[in-house]
Write a protein that binds this DNA or RNA. Structure first.
Lengths: 136, 136
DNA sequence: GTATGTGCAAATGGTTTGCAGTGGG
DNA sequence: CCCACTGCAAACCATTTGCACATAC
């Protein structure tokens, strides 16, 4: 039932390193990390494998509301909190939506597959750097 | 308090056409539409104005979970339902989230600004075209 | 009059792809 | 041994930007 056939060294290392991280790296950040173990790997290979891993459900691809896509090695249900300044993404325990709620009976004929919930804010680091307090 | 100074013809027409639409056009689709009234307008101008209009809150820029960004002339609170096959976006009456809910007391030090909720599914048109019923 | 906006075209940046060579099963 | 996978580099495509000219105010 596996979508991919071969268990290549590259694929193994990419998955290992991604699952090791609690941050939600971009493809190129992960590329930099993986390159420490496999110096000859190419960015294209990282993209190809992340895509495959995401398709087989081993990994989650986070839609890019801003900037680049990010990937999450943790597939348990949870939401994300994205910093609108630096793009950093943290986890939040997911407030699960009740899709059976009557208000949304009308789905316009769609077959609903799920939802994506993302919180937006300013992370601690960026709050320190700029003044985000309303001026007196 | 307006973010932009000049009320140019281009800006006016872009806003008018966007507000006329209930679909959620991409920049280039809107460009095609606007060009019917202003044949000499450039795509760059459309992008520049959509960005400005979004910043001043007159228009809403929908984060691109897949593919291109889309723009919404309707700024009243509502959620979106995106077709994962063709990218089409429809409106749904927003099930408003209660951010005061105790479960999410821990925001990891973030200053939370809001959230983005997007439903994913397959639109009526795409359901007809491909067989999305589980095979017997 | 002048700063702001426009058209054009070239640059950017993330992601994808074609191809010849490699290595997993 | 053979086909899925890799490395490389070029292609892609949405978006952004630099510049000279135009225009709203």
């Amino acid at each position: 039932m596996n979508t991919f056939q071969r268990n290549t060294q590259q694929r193994r290392v990419i998955l290992e390193e991604l699952q090791k991280l609690t941050s939600h790296p971009t493809a190129s950040l992960l590329y930099a990390i993986v390159r420490q173990r496999l110096p000859k790997i190419s960015l294209g290979t990282v993209y190809r494998n992340l895509e495959l891993l995401a398709q087989s459900g081993v990994v989650k691809k986070l839609g890019h509301t801003t900037g680049e896509a990010r990937f999450d090695g943790d597939t348990t249900p949870h939401s994300h909190l994205r910093c609108v300044e630096c793009g950093r993404v943290d986890d939040v325990s997911a407030p699960v939506l009740d899709l059976t709620g009557g208000a949304t009976d009308d789905w316009a004929g769609y077959q609903v597959l799920g939802y994506q919930l993302e919180f937006l804010g300013i992370c601690p680091t960026c709050r320190k750097q700029t003044n985000h307090v309303s001026n007196p």
